[in-house]
Design a binder for these strands. Structure first.
Lengths: 188, 188
DNA sequence: GTCTATAATAGGATAGAC
DNA sequence: GTCTATCCTATTATAGAC
């Protein structure tokens, strides 16, 4: 990482944004390099494995971001409703109110899917587990909680696609607004 | 089109499958050419505008497939439940039981999004309109019908992403199984 | 740790023979 | 209508100077 300029995390954040917008195949080293503000060769210094290394780092970074801003709030103290609200607020920031794609959602296509299948599955599973656990704590029966957690994750992913396709944030907004009832009180 | 070998529609079907799997940027002319069984130059004979032309043709082909297998059944005679069942059965085929991506969902990423924004929006809107209309006929109030139609479309897209990420068809299967109640009777 | 230079390859697209 | 040959650019990746 450029000693004073950007931390490694900041570098990866910028790489991640390019991958989210362009996908794995669509993200060229030229773009990645430009986004970071470093020459191509410098990027290879930090990511000897090239693009695949960079995308892998982005996935790990997303996991750690999710750990801090999504999973920890979900498991913190407070009512299930309050904890879920913090989770939803973090989602709204992560996805820029529905205007930025999900890294998982873009890497699931093309060659990157096989390349990162394990990580993709793990990230989705971890998220669903935490959501299901919250629902259980709110009094929802275990298998029903799991079903609802799956629905939450899938509706978020679908909302991002639809909002992107329509060029309209409102589906994403509506999904976020209904998540709490859906997971905890079940009315969609 | 190769006079005896493949019809233009068959050619476009094969191109579409490559775009669905690889995305716009990920689909190389070499792959597209191989999938069709024609040389690169022959492809340019049918699609002078190159890859963009091919993807545009795929989008049009999807629209016409949807018109025949999704929208027509939705508007046909019969109970709303029966019409929706035919729609769902067609979805299951289109997406190969959750194993193949949606062309709209893959073109929504990267440079292709701007390229095809108008078509993407139109395809999503047409589909939602038809679903909402069906719900209205089943006695659902207009604005509620629209809301449910949006949910149906977004849950399908999300299910494809999640099933892809988990490498597990069951989320897609569960979403299809719940569509009818969700749109017509509202219990998700 | 960053850069310039460069290699080697793949990608998109075209010309022209058959 | 299909093919071979070709062009040009972009792309990934590396070598080596500073």
């Amino acid at each position: 990482m450029p000693a004073p300029l950007l931390s490694r995390e900041q570098v990866i954040d910028r790489l991640m944004l390019v991958f989210r917008r362009q996908g794995f195949e669509g993200a060229s080293l030229a773009e990645l390099s430009k986004a970071v503000g470093l020459g191509r060769s410098s990027l290879y210094h930090y990511f000897p494995g090239g693009k695949e290394d960079m995308a892998r780092a982005a996935l790990e970074r997303l996991d750690s971001w999710a750990q801090e801003h999504l999973l920890t709030p979900l498991r913190a103290a407070g009512t299930p409703e309050a904890r879920l609200e913090r989770f939803i607020a973090a989602l709204d920031i992560l996805y820029a109110h529905g205007r930025e794609a999900c890294l998982l959602g873009t890497l699931v296509h093309g060659a990157s899917r096989l390349l990162f299948q394990k990580q993709l599955r793990a990230s989705f599973e971890t998220l669903m587990d935490a959501l299901a656990q919250l629902a259980v704590e709110a009094g929802v029966e275990t298998s029903e909680a799991r079903r609802r957690a799956e629905e939450v994750v899938l509706r978020i992913q679908g909302a991002l696609i639809l909002s992107g396709g329509l060029d309209d944030d409102s589906p994403f907004k509506r999904v976020l607004a209904s998540l709490s009832d859906q997971l905890l009180h079940s009315e969609v």
